[in-house]
Structure formats: structure tokens, C-alpha cells
Amino acid sequence: MIRVQQQDFDVAAELAALPAAGGICVFVGTVRDVSDGRPVAAMTLEHYPGMAERELARLEEEAQGRWPLAGVAIVHRYGRLQPGERIVLVAVAAPHRAAAFEACRFLIDRLKTEAPFWKSEETAGGARWVAARREDAAAAERWDS
């Protein structure tokens, strides 16, 4: 299940919608309050409508092919968000925890380097586009095989 939306999501409701397979592993990304030592006033997420959904669906399909999963939920927000607000949910239901943990990590690692979303942070120094991090690329490459 893939959704790209402006409004917030309810984590409990998203988990309740997944199959009762045995376990659910969840990652929720939130807006950080400090960036490079400066307080963040707000963050704006831009996305490529259409391609964002396609890339998330492609990643879900790849995860389903690599691990025995019962269900996947990915919700990604766009628009202007305040520190602490939820940005993204990745939830994976599986009969056994190893697959749930691994698939959840795979999905958030690859989402960060492949799904077309861009963050702009507002600090006292003005607004700036967040640069892609080398660590994120390395985390995503771990899943190449």
C-alpha cells in the first residue's frame, strides 16, 4: 500500500490495516529540530507527482520479491512541516521478525536515494535545499546484489 499525501497519518490506523501475520516492523521519519547545529523552523518537502508513487510501488514490489512478507505500508508526506511532524511511515508485516526488520530497513534506505522527494530546511540563516548524504548512498548500496 503506497500513499503520497499532504496531510498527517495515524500510525496506529496504518498498522491496524496490515495483515495479522506475526509481526510488524515500523519506521517513522520525523522533521529534525536541529540541522548542522542550527534550529530548524520548518521543512518543505517537494515531490514529483506520479514518479514518487511509481518509485515507492517499485520498491514495495522489490521487497515483496526478496522477503516473505504479508503486507507493506508506505506513506510519504509533502508540503511544509514543523519540527517533530511525521514525514514518512514504512511498516512491514511478516510471519517472522527477521524478514520484517530487513525489509523495513531496505525500504527506508532505498526510498531515501530513489524516491523523488526533496527537502528544503528553513533556519535563521534562510531556506536551503538539503544535500544528499554520502552515508545514505552507502546505506542504500548495501542492498545491491
Binding site: 514518487a52 510519504h76 514518512v88 531515501k112 523523488p116 522527494f117 526533496w118
Partner: peptide
């Protein structure tokens, strides 16, 4: 055809 920077979502 779309042109954009390396992505930074999640």
C-alpha cells in the same frame, strides 16, 4: 523529461 537533484526524502 524531468531534471532534478539527487533525492533527499524519507
Amino acid at each position: 523529461v524531468a531534471f532534478f537533484p539527487p533525492v533527499t526524502g524519507g
